[in-house]
């Protein structure tokens, strides 16, 4: 029987092929997909988040771990759907209009996936209309916005205003982040949360959904 800790350990080391192989083996041995997700992949990404926050892991280590998680998820996802397992929530994320920086946004997306969320990555240079459409049509519970430039930060406010204008403010929670963004700014524009880094974003989103 596959030890699910082995999946976590290989994920933490970024060994994508090994994670894929072990997930496959675990499924063929009849282990519940939701158990593999929780005790293998999510547990591994949790550790990655802790190490990142502690300054022990840098961006490449997080990215290769996320890649390993994806390789496991590729096999696991169809089985999770088949088994009717529920995700932790539906999360959409994008970098606001005029801004194409994507490292932070991608890290958030990966960490959220690693925490068992269904993630819709809207990409970069995302207009407020596109954010609103995603929330309206994809049943998004939490919307994340990223901006690396002081010049594009106002697009976060524009999006939050657009959500309100479309009657969505109470239906979706918003979280913002990026180098120039602060808690004060989040309060000022009416965002529900602010996160300093990708790993903390997971905790903040979980708290928003409680």
């Amino acid at each position: 029987m596959v030890d699910l800790k082995l999946i976590s350990e290989n994920l933490i080391s970024g060994k994508a092929a090994k994670v894929k192989e072990l997930v496959q083996q675990a499924l063929s041995e009849g282990i519940e997909p939701s158990k593999i997700l929780k005790e293998g992949l999510i547990a591994g990404m949790d550790t990655v988040g802790v190490k990142f926050k502690a300054g022990e892991f840098y961006i490449p280590e997080v990215l290769i771990a996320a890649r390993a998680m994806h390789s496991g998820m590729e096999i696991l996802k169809p089985q999770l759907i088949k088994s009717g397992a529920k995700s932790s929530g539906r999360f959409a994320v994008g970098t606001v209009k005029g801004d194409v920086h994507d490292i932070g946004k991608n890290l958030v997306a990966m960490m959220m996936e690693g925490a068992g969320f269904e993630v819709l990555d809207l990409g970069t240079d995302v207009s407020s209309d596109k954010f609103v459409d995603a929330v309206k049509n994809k049943n998004i519970e939490v919307l994340g916005m990223s901006s690396l430039l002081t010049t594009t930060m106002p697009m976060m406010k524009e999006t939050i205003d657009a959500l309100a204008a479309n009657g969505l403010k109470g239906k979706v929670k918003t979280i913002i982040g990026g180098a120039p963004v602060t808690q004060n700014y989040a309060d000022e524009i009416g965002a529900d949360a602010y996160s300093t880094d990708a790993a903390s974003a997971v905790d903040k989103v979980k708290a928003l959904l409680k």
Partner: peptide, 11 residues
Amino acid sequence: GIENLSNALYN
């Protein structure tokens, strides 16, 4: 891109 570069730094 940072993701491919990160992967290549290790793999």
